[in-house]
């Protein structure tokens, strides 16, 4: 039982990361029906910005005196950086192709993904970089279940970001504009919504969340590598599909489910094949229930 609970906590932590990445996929797909292949790279770029900024803080000696300030500042800056990166990618690679065939757009996205990944490799090196320790690894024991402070912090941050996003999408003007554009582009343009701005914002918000996930993954596992975006990217896509692509609540739920499944599969079935389970869920889901568990935003031409 304790083992089970422990796995639940690990699974939720991992699922939180997937949920944060999946949101970017699902929001972009909701607005322009594109699988943004470069999304995993935003996640990796976020992880790298975290390591760059935190190492800089550490070398200046700020990290020991003001750890929370450094972490918060780095996270905000990294999110901003990835948002800018995503807006640039959208302007260059996707906007001119909005009327072109879906295949061209997908290939353009794939090209951008390869480009960004190699850009990271060229500027930051082939080898993995390790995060400076922000918090000494204190562990909280509840009976036989142990939670590290790191896990508590990532869970809390993830939950905070998810709640914040929900508020942004369902309570603010720009959120309303995003939902309107996702539902009907022509109609939303007629009521005065600037579609280009909304699409830019969608990319920026999605990339910001991915960047936050990147920093937390980097701190959680201790290292980042230039190709770290690829596998989590596919798994997060699986999460987005599982929850019903285009559906924000679904993506959060899907992320948590994928995380839990992966951890339980690794614990009870086989550690080596843990990556396979996310793919199997993805394939089974697309085969049997392509609209996802929450179901939204899929029509005949897309599946």
């Amino acid at each position: 039982m304790d083992f089970f609970l422990q796995q639940c906590i690990n699974g939720l932590t991992l699922g939180g990361f997937y949920a944060l990445i999946a949101l970017g996929y699902t929001m972009v797909f909701g607005v322009i029906q594109l699988i943004n292949f470069a999304h995993g790279e935003f996640f990796a770029a976020g992880g790298y910005m975290g390591v760059i900024l935190l190492s800089f803080c550490a070398s200046m000696g700020f990290l020991e005196t003001h750890p929370l300030l450094c972490l918060g500042g780095s996270m905000l800056l990294a999110m901003g950086y990835c948002a800018m990166l995503a807006m640039a990618v959208e302007k260059i690679a996707y906007m001119p192709l909005r009327r072109a065939s879906r295949l061209s757009m997908l290939l353009s996205a794939l090209g951008m993904s390869i480009f960004l990944q190699n850009g990271l490799m060229l500027t930051q090196g082939v080898y993995s970089k390790s995060y400076p320790t922000v918090f000494t690894n204190k562990v909280l024991h509840l009976g036989n279940v142990s939670i590290s402070y790191m896990q508590i912090m990532t869970l809390a941050l993830t939950a905070g970001l998810l709640v914040g996003l929900n508020a942004l999408v369902f309570r603010t003007r720009i959120g309303t504009a995003m939902r309107a554009t996702a539902q009907d582009k022509v109609m939303s343009a007629l009521v005065g919504i600037n579609a280009n701005r909304v699409i830019s914002m969608t990319f920026a918000i999605g990339a910001g969340l991915a960047a936050a996930a990147g920093i937390m993954v980097g701190m959680y596992y201790g290292t980042v590598r230039y190709d770290m975006g690829f596998v989590p990217g596919i798994k997060a896509f699986a999460a987005a599909v599982l929850g019903g692509i285009g559906n924000i609540t679904g993506a959060m739920l899907g992320g948590l489910i994928i995380g839990l499944v992966e951890i339980f599969a690794a614990a009870y079935i086989s550690g080596e094949y843990k990556d396979v389970f996310a793919f199997i869920i993805l394939i089974a889901m697309l085969y049997f229930r392509p609209t996802g568990i929450m179901g939204e935003n899929v029509d005949d031409t897309r599946v």
Binding site: I35, I234, D275, F279, L282, I283, L286, Y287
Partner: peptide, 24 residues
Amino acid sequence: PTLRMRGDYLAIVTLGFGEIVRLI
């Protein structure tokens, strides 16, 4: 199993299958 899907989904599922083969 994948050919009932079209376009984008097919792309990502074949990607998943490719990874499964490599992992095996």
